Simulated scan of single mutants.
Amino acid sequence: MKRFNELTFEILEEKDIEILTPIMKRAFDEDTKIHLNELEGGPEGYDNGELLKKFGLHKDSTAYKISLNNEVIGCIILWINNETHQNFLGNIFIDPKVQNKGIGQEIWKFVESQYPDTIIWRTETPGFSTRNHNFYVNKCGFHVVKIENPMNKYDSKYILEKEIRR
């Protein structure tokens, strides 16, 4: 277990999937409501634990269950390459009830503090999710390097990078 300011980070375990799945569903559904005006939606397996099992428990990923004041609020899944130091943020989500309070930025500060040898961070996010674009670009320092399928609101994707300068 690691503490960072008011947050607690624990390595994701299989037993955590049950508590995190409804949080992931709420987070993705909230984004879908805001940006697509649809009641629910997310990547395959976001609503039944399969996505978390597939990627969060993958042998090559590093995933953390995140808590605030002893309450589980979200998760982050990272792919760390200790040879190239080019790492990938696979997924981050927090419960909508604690969003827009700077917690996402604190989570990202924790990540950067844990992997100081990183040369570049990469991630991707749906094209429709302007809230995510704002978070990654304006709050975390990423920049957009490519937009895939820009004319398709369901399949467009922003590819982002953050180069770490020393």
Score class of each variant (00 low, 15 high):
Tyr115Pro: 00
Pro126Ile: 06
Gly74Asp: 01
Asp47Thr: 06
Ile103Ala: 02
Tyr115Val: 07
Thr123Asn: 12
Thr62Lys: 12
Cys140Gly: 04
Leu20Ser: 06
Ile103Gln: 02
Glu112Gln: 12
Pro22His: 08
Trp79Arg: 12
Val72Gly: 05
Lys139Glu: 08
Lys65Gln: 10
Leu7Lys: 08
Glu10Thr: 15
His143Phe: 08
Cys140Ala: 14
Ile94Trp: 01
Phe110Ile: 05
Leu52Val: 04
Ile119Thr: 11
Asn81His: 10
Phe9His: 07
Glu30Cys: 08
Leu39Asn: 15
Lys65Trp: 02
Ile92Thr: 06
Arg3Thr: 14
Val145Asn: 11
Ile147Tyr: 05
Thr118Gly: 02
Tyr115Glu: 06
Gly56Asp: 10
Pro116Asn: 07
Leu57Asp: 01
Phe135Asp: 01
Gly45Phe: 08
Phe9Glu: 04
Val98Lys: 06
Pro96Gly: 08
Glu40Phe: 09
Pro150Phe: 09
Arg122Gly: 04
Ser156Ile: 11
Ile23Lys: 04
Ile11Ala: 10
Glu38Thr: 04
Lys109Leu: 12
Ile147His: 11
Glu14Thr: 13
Glu14Met: 12
Thr125Glu: 02
Glu71Lys: 15
Leu52Phe: 03
Gln99Glu: 08
Leu57Ala: 03
Met24Asp: 03
Ile73Pro: 01
Val72Lys: 09
Lys2Ile: 14
Glu14Asn: 15
Thr84Tyr: 03
